[in-house]
């Protein structure tokens, strides 16, 4: 790639990005106007973007273009859209909004009935019937080289899955046997929660690292970073935020929240 020369808008954008990142981080100290500013900017912009996206991505190609092309059937979604807004026009006509909502829910309920059952039930069941003989032949009891595949894993899969399923058996009083099964199911769930917790935390930390890299300018090509001076931006914005917080605090900001808490 050619070494690019960034426009002043791009540079300003990068600075704003750093300033807002620090603004959000200021929440670590307390809920404060800088954080609120960042939060509201974020909210407003996101709504603006999604409105535009919706229009160009969904409404225009699926409705307006089709109507313009003379597709008569497209009047149906148009009318349904209009019905959704009936409530705004008058309280008495508010019930009209229920029709498109009911349509969406009902249509998807129908589609999902088989879709969900297939994806979440049938396929999973089919894939949870390991051929133990084959596992034994290929991997033995436990195969370190294949992520622990083997007969043990196969049995553990079936037993653990069954126990978890039975843990969610709601309509029976639990006798000692059921309690035992349920306890094992809980154990399996806890194991998986632990694994997933660790996995997700790792993901979050990498996100945090990403933010830090941006603040330090490590996420951009060197030539871009040289134009933006991200480290300078971080220091300047950081000082500004801290200075603001000090002034805000000295003028009595945040006192009411502490009282409430």
């Amino acid at each position: 790639m050619e070494p690019s020369v960034l426009s002043s808008l791009d540079i300003a954008g990068a600075w704003v990005s750093i300033a807002l990142t620090l603004g959000i981080f200021s929440f670590l100290y307390a809920d404060n106007p800088v954080y609120k500013l960042a939060e509201h900017l974020f909210l407003g912009i996101s709504i603006g973007i999604s409105m535009t996206e919706m229009y160009y991505g969904v409404v225009r190609p699926n409705l307006i273009d089709k109507l313009a092309a003379g597709n008569v059937l497209s009047v149906v979604p148009l009318v349904m859209c209009a019905m959704l807004f009936a409530r705004l026009a008058s309280k008495k006509l508010g019930w009209l909004a229920r029709i498109p909502i009911a349509f969406i829910v009902a249509a998807y309920a129908g589609v999902k009935l088989t879709g969900e059952a297939n994806g979440n039930l049938m396929t999973q069941v089919a894939q949870s019937m390991p051929n133990l003989a084959e596992l034994w032949r290929d991997h033995g009891i436990w195969d370190w080289s294949a992520d622990g595949a083997g007969v043990f894993s196969g049995i553990f899969l079936v037993v653990g899955l069954s126990a978890c399923l039975l843990h969610f058996y709601f309509s029976a009083r639990q006798g000692p046997t059921m309690r035992g099964i349920s306890r094992f199911g809980v154990l399996v769930l806890m194991l998986s929660f632990g694994a997933s917790f660790g996995y997700t935390v790792m993901g979050r930390i990498s996100l945090a690292i990403g933010r830090a890299q941006e603040l330090l300018g490590l996420d951009k090509p060197a030539e871009e970073a040289a134009q933006i001076h991200p480290q300078l931006a971080s220091v300047v914005c950081g000082v500004l935020v801290i200075a603001f917080l000090v002034v805000w605090r000295l003028r009595g900001g945040g006192a009411e929240q502490e009282e409430a808490a």
């Binding site: 069941v125 949870s128 019937m129 390991p130 133990l132 003989a133 084959e134 069954s162 399923l165 969610f168």
Partner: peptide
Amino acid sequence: KVFVVVMLVVGTIAAS
């Protein structure tokens, strides 16, 4: 759920 559990066990044995 009970049906699925039964199927899992039976299915695994059959598959094996």
